[in-house]
Nucleic acid binder design. Structure first.
Lengths: 158, 158
DNA sequence: TGAGATTGTATGCAATACTAACGAATAGGC
DNA sequence: GCCTATTCGTTAGTATTGCATACAATCTCA
């Protein structure tokens, strides 16, 4: 818990932290999901500031590495992104020569995606940074709690 | 689990669903937080399409209702938003006459925020919609699981 | 073969989030 | 009380994500 906004305003008193003041909204599950996501997102961004990669970009490179030749539509479905959003992310990664498009031999409508050597190198760096980031998330949980958390979260997005 | 991308590509076989194909990235806690957040976000958007409100906008109105006269900086700290982001959201809500700014009597640098009557009316509608949305989230959990999930999430963002 | 569905692409729009800078107001040390 | 540093609101600019829409190429299936 960080130190913040104590004794700043007559509306509040000094001996509680933020959460004591939130009110009803504190009971909303979605609210906590959003805050947790935001905290995660910010830490991720700090961890990846040197690599200049976002969560989405890393996810895409990671999936392309594990599924060479995957199409944009399949990629989007795995990450729950629509075609247009997938396009912009792939475009950026292609512009940085991290991956390439290639016409699918089995389906002329599809583009098969492959990592470029530069992309593989960056992904390896990214995986190291991910490990740091994961440790930051997991540091507050026991192994059993991590397992529980992931199971509960999976039930929401599956 | 929705039906999707079966028999679409030679890379995959047909008897598994998406998660079986994700690979290593499936073990990353942050990945599941992001997916769960995305699922939540999309359902929220669908639920609030008629009210034309986003999660942030509802959160801000809700907090202003529970903390009349709150300053923008305090609001931002409770929702983990910086000053600039808070500004744009308050601007939009003010333009729609849902809340108003008033110079703080105790600190000339601050603006005190108050809900307008229109904002109160909309917030009441929003709370009904939130109840629907919450039921959608909670429908897959027992009460104990909801409690566990919220405690674990709170540890991330606190 | 032909109609309908799928995929990639392009364009535009909205919301979120951050940085940097500036002025007004406050707070704290002296 | 005064001066300096800090805080708060504001504006402007940039990047990312997400969605809708439209179009062309391709595939599927009746």
């Amino acid at each position: 818990m960080r130190v913040r906004d104590l004794d700043l305003d007559a509306v509040t008193t000094v001996e509680h932290d933020d959460d004591a003041y939130l009110g009803e909204i504190n009971d909303i599950v979605g609210f906590h999901i959003r805050l947790a996501h935001g905290a995660c997102y910010r830490h991720f961004t700090e961890t990846f500031v040197e690599l200049e990669l976002t969560q989405k970009q890393v996810s895409v490179m990671w999936l392309v590495a594990d599924h060479p030749g995957i199409s944009q539509i399949d990629l989007g479905q795995k990450l729950r992104m629509d075609r247009a959003t997938t396009m912009t992310i792939v475009n950026r990664l292609q512009a940085r020569h991290y991956l390439r498009r290639e016409k699918s031999p089995t389906d002329g409508r599809k583009q098969a995606l492959y990592l470029q050597p530069a992309g593989e190198a960056v992904l390896n760096e990214a995986k190291k940074a991910i490990r740091e980031h994961e440790n930051w998330v997991k540091s507050r949980f026991s192994d059993a709690e991590v397992k529980t958390l992931m199971e509960l979260l999976a039930r929401i997005h599956e």
